[in-house]
Amino acid sequence: MTDHAVDSSRLYDEFVKGIWKENPVFVQVLGMCPMLAVTNSAVNALAMGLATAFVLIGSSVLVSLFRRLIPRQVRISTYIIIIATFVTVADFTLEAVVPTVHRELGAFISLIVVNCLILGRQEAFASRNPIHVALADAVGMAIGFAFALFCLGATREILGSGSLFGVSLFGENFEPWVIMVLPPGGFLMLGFILLFFNWVQQRRTLRPSRVSPATREAA
């Protein structure tokens, strides 16, 4: 099979794997810094997801495009320059378009540079695959990452503030679980989501035998 004969099913596989089977957060447990730091509301989580998607897709396309031109010895430095450029552009754009969200996310926008998910995709995938495959992979991974961020952000906002996207869900008398919008709430909720994800995965693979959910608490 050559570059030109890549069938659409391969593209589809590369796209879909990032969303579920190799989800960057639930399965690979990558990019924990933004995952824990900025998911105290659904809006923040989504904004971070979009910014990361922009950086990931942009740099994957460029890296894949120039993969034959970049010497192996300086590839990491080159990838970082490319990634940092996209991050800074995203930083400026967010500050101009949505200043309130930008203020909430603060330094974590700049820290996308060191999100190991992004560099990891360049090194492991984009630098070795043709552009359309790399694009499919990056879009899938970006959606998977944004989806995970959104899951965490939405649950934390619902429990911690009683609202979703700032819209109050339970009325005036809701007692917010303050811990959920604080950093420990991020760790707790991430633990629960990973637990749930592993439980679902285990049920799927071991369907015939009886599986006890509590044995997977280690997540």
Binding site: E175, W177, V178
Partner: peptide
């Protein structure tokens, strides 16, 4: 400790 962090006022 969980309750204390979740519902500090109560």
């Amino acid at each position: 400790a969980f309750l204390q962090a979740a519902f500090p006022t109560a």
